[in-house]
């Protein structure tokens, strides 16, 4: 195993242990991750049942249930919070300790991110099952949609993580980033299809949302795993778009990391 992978595995194990220390907090975060899509489901489900056709943007109550239930899982797997963390690391000087190590600090953050997701699954899965039992979702994926959906979810998770990290690097220039974190979260909700399926948004928002990377993190894997919404061609195009955005973000990360580090080592260290 090479050094970054060894470091990642070690950080993952250590952060698993940290999460175990804070089971209460992990439970609360899990509840938070479930509540948001549950509330949105309730809202859109009521809207659909109130409409004359019982359908909004191609979704009836049962398919809204499937959409938001799947979004719970996708939202969980794609969670990334470096845009909040990095400012603290820079302001408190903790970044310096990480920079004295022979692997990128990002590996520590990825280890922590993965550990959080594994531990919270323990709570999310039972809550998800209870919710599914109550709302009776309509899932109808073919086998290829499940396979592509899982791949899209992994790619979406990598995209969300990298975008959060790339934005977080603004901390090297302006180390108080909470507002940027909130803007990132709001955009991901609206333009990622987490607040509502993008097709249900006002017509002038739809092309903007589709041009941004957020759809490829959240809505695209969700639609595949719900099933019956995307053609084979749309699926292939979506996976290519994900890989394309990933390439863009990897380049952005490399350029910004170098510039950010230069800035950090020039002004504070």
């Amino acid at each position: 195993m090479n050094l970054p992978m060894r470091a990642l595995a070690a950080h993952f194990r250590a952060h698993l242990a940290v999460m175990m220390q804070y089971r209460g907090e992990v439970l609360l975060w899990s509840v938070w991750g479930v509540i948001s899509p549950a509330v949105l489901y309730a809202m859109w489900s009521a809207a659909a049942s109130g409409s004359s056709s019982g359908v909004i943007a191609g979704y009836d109550q049962a398919s809204f249930a499937a959409y938001f239930l799947m979004m719970m899982i996708v939202g969980h797997v794609t969670a990334a919070w470096d845009v909040y963390e990095m400012g603290y690391l820079v302001r408190s000087g903790s970044m310096s300790a990480q920079l004295l190590k022979p692997v990128l600090p990002m590996w520590q953050s990825i280890g922590a991110n993965m550990a959080y997701k594994v531990v919270t699954l323990m709570f999310v899965v039972p809550m998800w099952a209870i919710f599914a039992w109550i709302v009776k979702p309509k899932f109808q994926p073919e086998w290829w949609e499940v396979a592509a959906g899982l791949a899209a979810m992994v790619l979406g998770s990598a995209l969300a993580y990298l975008l959060s990290y790339v934005m977080a690097m603004a901390a090297f220039w302006a180390p108080k980033l909470d507002a940027l974190g909130e803007a990132f979260f709001a955009l991901s909700m609206f333009a990622g299809g987490r607040f509502a399926p993008i097709e249900a948004l006002p017509w002038y928002v739809v092309p903007v949302a589709k041009a941004l990377p957020f759809r490829w993190m959240y809505e695209f894997p969700t639609e595949l795993l719900v099933g019956g919404r995307l053609s084979g061609a749309e699926t292939v195009w979506g996976l290519i778009a994900q890989l394309g955005w990933l390439g863009v973000l990897v380049v952005a990360f490399r350029v910004l990391w170098r510039a950010g580090l230069k800035r950090y080592t020039a002004v504070s260290g």
Partner: peptide
């Protein structure tokens, strides 16, 4: 001890 183990892995 956990930090020591992580350090050993990070420094190879």
């Amino acid at each position: 001890m956990d930090s020591f183990i992580v350090h050993g892995a990070v420094f190879g």
